[in-house]
């Protein structure tokens, strides 16, 4: 069942709309009335100091916070105009569309092939030859195919950190996710690997809507077109990355990006 927002034409809609989102861990309020619109085929960076709620916000976009006990959410998140916090939402379908890349690369304790095929198998989307070619396509998209094609049956746990993170992205590409949520995807990687993942993100932007949480302001400035700055659960400022980093409107944003705190 699709719940569309009233009076909105589907063509002009934003890919993701966050409306008056409040989140509580027990009695502690971690998100304060956050609203923002995210454009398709755009990389949006969320910056802010540790504990500001940027990861929490990201995990609201695919409802990963549901896994934590004692969390309550008020407000809405619309993806393609559909409120994912509505009672009738099919979480399985939603998460197929909204993929997530985690801070620590988390390939499953399975073979490389099985990792990429995982999503296709659990959703019964492909088998046999079709499955193999989707796995190949996905590994090619993250530039792993050439180095791994001869050992697809090896354990994914033996890969390097960068390869693991690429593999985790390939899992999502195989599923043809539309949104990629990235929670500090490079914080476990060295600078060269980080650069290569950033190049990959720029490439993926053509087909995906990407939201990246990062504590690294240079990274936000390099990869994103739009940036949101959060402080103590509040979205202080949100706009074009160039504006945020060159002439922020809010004093607190300026203090943060010039390194006065954080």
């Amino acid at each position: 069942m699709i719940i569309l927002r009233d009076g909105l034409d589907k063509r002009t809609m934003h890919k993701i709309e966050i409306r008056n989102l409040n989140l509580f861990y027990g009695k502690f309020q971690a998100l304060m009335d956050v609203s923002m619109n995210l454009k398709p085929n755009t990389i949006t960076a969320m910056i802010g100091s540790s504990g500001c709620g940027k990861s929490t916000l990201l995990r609201c976009i695919n409802r990963m916070n549901d896994l934590i006990e004692d969390v309550s959410v008020k407000g809405s998140v619309f993806i393609d105009g559909e409120d994912i916090y509505h009672t009738y939402v099919d979480l399985v379908k939603m998460r197929r569309k909204v993929g997530m890349v985690f801070q620590r690369p988390n390939p499953f304790p399975l073979s490389i092939f099985e990792n990429v095929a995982f999503g296709l198998k659990i959703h019964h989307l492909a088998k046999g030859k079709a499955l193999e070619s989707r796995v190949e396509e996905s590994l090619k998209a993250v530039l792993l195919w050439e180095e791994l094609k001869d050992r697809l049956n090896a354990s994914a746990l033996d890969l390097s950190l960068e390869q693991k993170q690429r593999l985790c992205i390939a899992r999502l590409i195989a599923l043809k996710s539309e949104v990629l949520l990235m929670d500090e995807p490079c914080s476990a990687l060295d600078p060269i690997a980080t650069q290569r993942i950033e190049e990959l993100m720029a490439e993926l932007k053509k087909n995906y809507t990407i939201v990246i949480v990062t504590h690294n302001m240079q990274q936000a400035a390099r990869v994103s077109q739009e940036t949101g700055f959060m402080l103590l659960g509040e979205l202080v400022e949100f706009g074009l990355t160039t504006d945020i980093f060159t002439h922020p409107r809010d004093k607190r944003t300026e203090d943060y990006i010039t390194g006065r705190f954080g």
């Binding site: 197929r96 993929g99 988390n106 995982f118 999503g119 959703h123 985790c168």
Partner: peptide, 20 residues
């Protein structure tokens, strides 16, 4: 992280259990 990864891919609780 294994479980979160599987659930983020849309796996159900049971699929996460027996596949990961």
């Amino acid at each position: 992280e294994y479980k979160e990864g599987a659930i983020a891919l849309g796996a159900t609780h049971w699929q996460t259990l027996y596949r990961v």
